[in-house]
């Protein structure tokens, strides 16, 4: 089976600081990887390098299939009602968004800027699912979510993996991922 993501000899440098590396990654479809480590260790940088948004200082990343990214940036128009803001991505991606399941169906007429931290995370999840990408890269997906929200994210990840998606989760919070590999970036710190 072809790997979803392979990284060889990755080294990350931000500014004049060497953060971590060299490290190797190999993620097969259906696999999950939990990235841990304290703040500032470079979890977000690793995700952005995996997404192809950031160039590694050394090494290479090979991806196969579409990847979706969930990070701290919401990418929804703040002044628009949630419905209209999500409609932009729905028109672009054409995928269905399970709004009711995410608890967003009662918030559709609320402007995005009035949403709480947890509600914003749920809206970002709607955008993520609507993209319909096979593999997911999630940066702190549990931030601001209540217990039900955490359980929902764990279920969503399990469903994505069951459909052959690879998932990388960067989180300093514990997250229940069945049979996931755990990588502590401290062991790769430069």
């Amino acid at each position: 089976m072809q790997a979803a993501l392979t990284a060889t000899g990755l080294v990350c440098r931000r500014g004049d600081r060497l953060l971590w590396g060299p490290l190797e990654l190999a993620l097969a479809p259906g696999q999950a990887l939990h990235l841990t480590g304290p703040n500032g260790i470079g979890k977000t940088s690793l995700l952005r390098i995996a997404a192809g948004l950031l160039r590694p200082f050394a090494g290479a990343v090979e991806r196969s299939g579409a990847f979706a990214l969930l990070d701290g940036a919401l990418a929804l128009d703040e002044h628009q009602p949630l419905d209209a803001a999500l409609a932009f991505w729905r028109r672009m991606d054409g995928g269905p968004m399970p709004l009711e399941r995410l608890g967003l169906h009662t918030l559709l007429d609320v402007p995005v800027r009035y949403l709480s931290t947890g509600q914003r995370k749920r809206a970002a999840l709607a955008r993520l699912i609507g993209q319909g990408a096979r593999h997911w890269l999630l940066d702190e997906p549990l931030n601001g979510l209540d217990d039900a929200g955490v359980a929902l994210v764990e279920t969503l990840i399990a469903e994505r993996r069951a459909q052959g998606g690879a998932v990388i989760v960067a989180s300093h919070q514990p997250i229940a991922l069945d049979g996931a590999a755990v990588m502590d970036l401290r062991t790769h710190a430069a």
Partner: peptide
């Protein structure tokens, strides 16, 4: 750029 739209467009190719 700051609210992540360009990142999301890049993820969609």
């Amino acid at each position: 750029f700051q609210s992540g739209f360009f990142d999301q467009w890049a993820m969609r190719g």
